[in-house]
Amino acid sequence: MTDETKAQLEEAIVNLIREFVNRKRFKPGDVVKEMEVKFSASDVTKDDVKSAIRELTDSGRLIYGYAGGSFLSLPE
């Protein structure tokens, strides 16, 4: 995965969460599945999406929430 694809991937993940804010709670697993489809043309693997999520949560751009199950969310 190129650095450019990686940046696009991270951006797409954040946008997905933002787009559905207050409507759908995305489990990290859901995000992986969505991104696999969205980036199917650019060789993005499951592990790539997982590591992108890790970078986003480590940097604080996304946080984990919990409501009967864990999901990804924008920081308050």
Partner: peptide, 17 residues
């Protein structure tokens, strides 16, 4: 009340809000 968004940076686990 319910837990909500409570955790340490990077982890989604280990803290019960």
């Amino acid at each position: 009340k319910h837990g909500g968004m409570v955790g340490v940076k990077g982890y989604g686990s280990g803290i019960v809000g």
